[in-house]
Amino acid sequence: MWFWLFKYILMGPLLALLGRPKIEGLENVPRSGPAILASNHLAVADSFYLSLAVRRRIAYLAKAEYFTGTGLKGRFLRWFYTVTGNVPIDRTDADTAQAALNTAERLLGEGRLIGIYPEGTRSPDGRLHKGKTGLGRLAVRTGASVIPVAMIGTDIVNPPGSKMWRFGKVTVRFGKAIDFARYEGLAGTPFIDRAVTDEVMYELMGLSGQEYIDIYAATVKAGGKSAGSTGETTRIPPTSAA
Score class of each variant (00 low, 15 high):
I23T: 09
R78E: 02
G175D: 03
M164G: 10
T82A: 11
H41I: 05
L113K: 08
D46V: 03
H41K: 03
T154H: 04
I36A: 09
F3T: 09
Y66G: 04
Y212N: 06
T84G: 11
W79F: 05
K169C: 14
S240D: 12
A150N: 05
P238H: 04
G209M: 05
L101K: 04
N40Q: 08
G33I: 06
V87N: 01
R56D: 13
L18T: 07
F180K: 02
L5N: 12
L18R: 02
E184R: 12
V140I: 11
A181L: 10
S208H: 05
H41M: 04
W2M: 13
S145H: 15
E24D: 13
R122K: 08
R78V: 00
K176V: 09
G168R: 00
P13D: 06
A195M: 10
K225V: 14
R57Q: 12
V44I: 14
I152V: 15
M201N: 01
T171F: 07
R20C: 04
A16E: 11
G120C: 05
V87P: 01
S226W: 12
G126H: 03
G134V: 08
K22F: 10
I215S: 07
E24M: 15
D125H: 13
L77A: 04
G223R: 08
G126I: 03
R75D: 04
I116M: 11
E65N: 08
I215K: 01
I213A: 08
A38W: 01
T154C: 07
P237S: 10
G126F: 05
F76M: 04
A187P: 09
T230C: 12
V146L: 11
V29T: 08
E65T: 03
H41G: 01
G111A: 09
I58L: 07
A181E: 08
T239Q: 10
D95K: 13
I213V: 12
